[in-house]
């Protein structure tokens, strides 16, 4: 790590912003997510090739890397939308296995936000948000709706509660999706390229919500190429390539002094204007 190479910094290309104030991270001895040597194949294709990661409570992790490198696949293994075939994934003390009860237990604690929002188009915004709390958490409708309204307030669109997703802008839809995930009161939030399907002016409103969430101490795994967000919020960044973690570290290190050639190449590609 210390051998002096040609140092290349990308910090110039990223808008310099103040770090977001956040509560203390949980102890490194009790990580909330542990991934050990995770492998996955699609048929013959080896998508994940031994991924190791530990995430502390309250930590914000940013995952980036080229298309097809397995970022989505990895993050989806954490709430078992995909199955890993080798290695171990332990989330909040529960090891992911074929046991259906484990999967159900973990999905209660892990919220997910998708690139394509995936809101339920036949339900109103409020119904989208309260469905999980009512049928999975078994809250009564009134309590679920109160909390849903608070969340809509928090993501800035309380007036949209009774509309259908199709009547909202992309940015609004993604904020509803975040509220829907939060309504389950998860301990961990997964974001898979939450802003990639959005027009530039809407990206900001979604990132602001995510920053506020980070500031509140939520544990977050975010696949994104929004480097400004990473710089202001991330604790650790992981660079994925060909199903492996090529390099990881705090944003200062990744941006100011990346070690691996592949990381440098990728950063230079996405940051050039």
């Amino acid at each position: 790590m210390s051998t002096e190479q040609t140092q290349q910094s990308f910090a110039e290309s990223i808008p310099d912003r103040e770090r977001i104030e956040r509560p203390e991270l949980g102890s490194a001895d009790e990580p909330i997510i542990v991934c050990e040597d995770v492998h996955k194949w699609y048929g013959q294709f080896h998508v994940l090739r031994g991924v190791n990661m530990q995430v502390r409570k309250g930590e914000v992790v940013v995952i980036f890397g080229p298309s097809g490198s397995g970022k989505s696949t990895f993050i989806r293994c954490i709430n078992r939308l995909e199955e890993h075939q080798k290695g171990r994934i332990i989330v909040d003390g529960i090891e992911l296995s074929h046991d259906v009860r484990n999967i159900a237990a973990i999905r209660k604690e892990v919220g997910m936000v998708f690139q394509q929002f995936n809101l339920f188009p036949h339900l109103t915004v409020l119904q989208n948000i309260t469905l999980g709390p009512i049928y999975v958490r078994k809250w009564d409708k009134q309590k679920a709706e109160e909390i849903a309204m608070q969340l809509l307030e928090r993501v800035g669109i309380p007036e949209q509660a009774h509309k259908y997703p199709g009547q909202l802008s992309g940015g609004q839809q993604q904020r509803v999706a975040i509220a829907r995930a939060l309504a389950m009161q998860p301990k961990i939030m997964l974001f898979d390229e939450p802003t990639s399907a959005l027009d530039p002016e809407m990206i900001k409103e979604v990132l602001e919500v995510m920053e506020e969430l980070a500031a509140s101490g939520m544990t977050m795994l975010v696949v994104t190429h929004e480097m400004g967000f990473a710089r202001a919020v991330a604790d650790t960044m992981y660079f994925f390539d060909q199903g492996q973690i090529v390099e990881s570290g705090p944003p200062e290190q990744i941006f100011e002094n990346p070690q691996e050639d592949r990381t440098k190449l990728f950063l230079s590609q996405i940051l050039q204007h």
Binding site: N79, L81, A104, R107, K108, V110, G111, M112, F114, N118, L119, F120, L131, G132, Y135, V136, R180, A181, M184
Partner: peptide, 10 residues
């Protein structure tokens, strides 16, 4: 739609 339903734990 299936994935979103799975993700909220239905």
């Amino acid at each position: 739609q299936y994935e979103a339903a799975d993700a909220i734990g239905l």
